[in-house]
Design a protein around this nucleic acid. Structure first.
Lengths: 378, 378
DNA sequence: ACGGTCGTGGCAAGCGATTGCCAAAAGTTG
DNA sequence: CAACTTTTGGCAATCGCTTGCCACGACCGT
């Protein structure tokens, strides 16, 4: 509170009987100062409780040891993984971590970048809403690393939507589904489009019919409209833009008495916390979001250190995998028995018995191993 | 990337034909400069795309317009609410927001504070793990606002555990439970102790027997041991330190075939995302975590502005409320029928049928309205 | 007409580091 | 031992902005 004037290099210098520059070099450029002197200086600094002032350092050297991460919606659990991965990596590197929320707005995103411009070494832009042009423009004067967004020459990391969507389609196809509908996220979302494109391609290759509905807000609350629209479409497999939306869809379907997976199957993206808690537990495409965060920071850090052309990967793609749970099952058959699939019913954990009037009672066929909770998510 | 030398007050000053100090005052102390001059300067600044450099400002004036929030475990959904509340408020105030993870370690917490010391105006310490003495010590030279932690003279905000725990006890008592066990979180956690004390007091007042087990890691993974220990204790009502732990307990109980709420009831704290998704949906004490984050930042901001004794509340207590869902029910009766409680079974949404061997089949008594999903949580 | 307030704007000294340049000291070499 | 290279440490300028202090002119009252 009160300001007892913190100790500076000058204090240390005086006390140690050397010049301030020597103290500075002791910290910033140790090989430039004699080992014994250095020892001495360090000792004195220690004794005086000296801490370098990052602001002064930054002002002079331009090296701020700080990065900022901007996310469209800090409220969305989807980003939590990325955020924590990024924070971890930054922290490991001794870099301070600024978190900003852009409220799904490109303008807001620009503003934040503007504001933080002087204060950070670079930005991690998660699911950036800005246009390609804008982004490229900004990249000319700023250090950027993109997460789940691709822009020509810019470094970034994405979770691999292509193969992921392919896995989803294969899974659904193998369950006998012939018609898929994609419940889309925001249209400015690169990821939403990417997912749609990949899904469509995969479906077409497989000869399934596929449609897109939306956009829907990528939140639980978007699920109502999405579910209703999907039901009208007649598709038997619904692929939601993310788990939040999928959970909303599940809710709405349950309200409307539509059996899942008896009548329709539902798939999400992200495998957020809670995806294995809902009923039925959600089949979803899991991506290493933490890893994405880490890698993005890594890219930023790397770029900063070696300015000249560095053959390091500027573009990393992270693998996804499909986590199959209870919200997907065989396409509804007309025969009452043996058509549906119930998860292995272990004592005490119920998750079946989903459909009632409309869904035929289902026998215990199916894939007994599938109902198990996903990996621990603390 | 390349550095085209950003425009400074000097550029603006030259261009506008005034002194640099005038430019500075135009921004920092507008009433000190003539309206027309100011207009002119602003126009020029605008044209040149001038942005003040916060680092230089901070270096000179000590005003950094930046705060940091430290949380013990960035991985824990419990904190997300607080984090986003804090980020929002900071953002509204034009204050940049640094997020740090302390990995549940007091030492780490100190270090972070040390490191960020020069860079921020103050710290929001969420569920700080540091001792009272250490905290007080730090508070002498730093601006602090505590969340869910109370230390004598320090400003802070807590969610109201006392009445909250009382509500829990009342609820359980009214369901006929006579014996409660508290599954404790980390012992350094002030909150964990606070909850325990309040719970014990409430239980004793009500004449219920109450015990404490633990500590358990406040994560889903801690639930296994917690559940097992609780079963041995013979209590019929388990109150877990937080929802994560409660969810873990639910899992374990389900694995062991123990009916919830048929055989035991389970209550959590926090009402995190997912608490209403699990099976059975968790009864839990909801607190306004977002609000807590906001208020903490508010306190910090307030303190900074008016240095002299300000009668503003330095200590705010936020109300909690019990969200009753499906994990609590009447104490198990010996009669097979009518003892347990199944949520209203609406078509298409299954959630009952939890117990098997040990739990008697349950009829449709109980509180039909209770199974509904909680308020929207995006 | 003269001294006194005010309102404005400029000068210059920092804030706490970094760093280019230089000189003294030390070590090398023929 | 002279000439030369390498270490090592000091000087002082600089980063971009804030702010105490001063000066100048306009306006005021008497």
């Amino acid at each position: 509170m009160n300001t007892p004037r913190r100790t500076t290099i000058y204090d240390v210098a005086t006390e140690a009987g050397v010049a301030a520059s020597t103290v500075s070099r002791t910290f910033g450029n140790p090989r430039r100062v004699n080992a014994t002197t250095r020892e001495h200086v360090l000792r004195v600094a220690e004794r005086l409780g000296y801490r370098p002032n990052p602001l002064a350092t930054a002002l002079q050297s331009g090296h701020k040891a700080t990065i900022a991460m901007l996310v469209p919606d800090i409220t969305n659990p989807h980003f939590f993984g990325t955020i924590r991965g990024a924070e971890r990596r930054a922290s490991e590197a001794g870099v301070t971590f600024i978190l900003g929320n852009t409220e799904e707005s490109a303008a807001n995103e620009r503003n934040q970048i503007e504001r933080l411009d002087h204060s950070v070494d670079g930005f991690v832009l998660a699911a950036s809403r800005m246009s390609d042009e804008t982004t490229v423009g900004i990249a000319q004067s700023h250090n950027l690393a993109l997460v789940n967004r691709e822009v020509d020459g810019l470094p970034g990391v994405v979770v691999d939507t292509g193969p992921g969507s392919w896995q989803i389609v294969e899974h659904l196809a193998s369950l006998g589904h012939r018609s898929i509908v994609y419940l889309s996220g925001p249209h400015q979302s690169w990821l939403a489009n990417e997912r749609w494109k990949a899904l469509r391609a995969a479906a077409e290759r497989r000869g399934l019919s596929v449609g897109r509905l939306g956009p829907f807000p990528p939140r639980v609350s978007g699920g109502g409209a999405a579910a209703d629209a999907a039901l009208v479409s007649g598709a038997t497999a619904l692929v939601a833009h993310n788990d939040l939306l999928a959970i909303g869809v599940l809710r709405r379907l349950s309200e409307r008495g539509v059996a899942v997976p008896g009548r329709v199957s539902v798939v999400g993206y992200d495998d957020i916390f809670g995806a294995d808690l809902c009923v039925p537990a959600l089949t979803t495409l899991a991506g290493p979001e933490d890893e994405a965060g880490r890698v993005a920071v890594e890219l930023l850090l790397r770029k900063g250190s070696l300015s000249t052309a560095h053959p390091a990967p500027q573009r990393v793609v992270l693998p996804t995998h499909l986590v199959i749970r209870d919200s997907t099952g065989p396409r509804r058959a007309e025969t009452p028995a043996g058509s549906g699939r119930a998860p292995a019913r272990r004592p005490g954990r119920g998750s079946g018995d989903t459909g009632t009037a409309r869904a035929p009672a289902r026998s215990r066929l199916g894939h007994p191993g599938r109902g198990s909770p996903s990996a621990e998510r603390p």
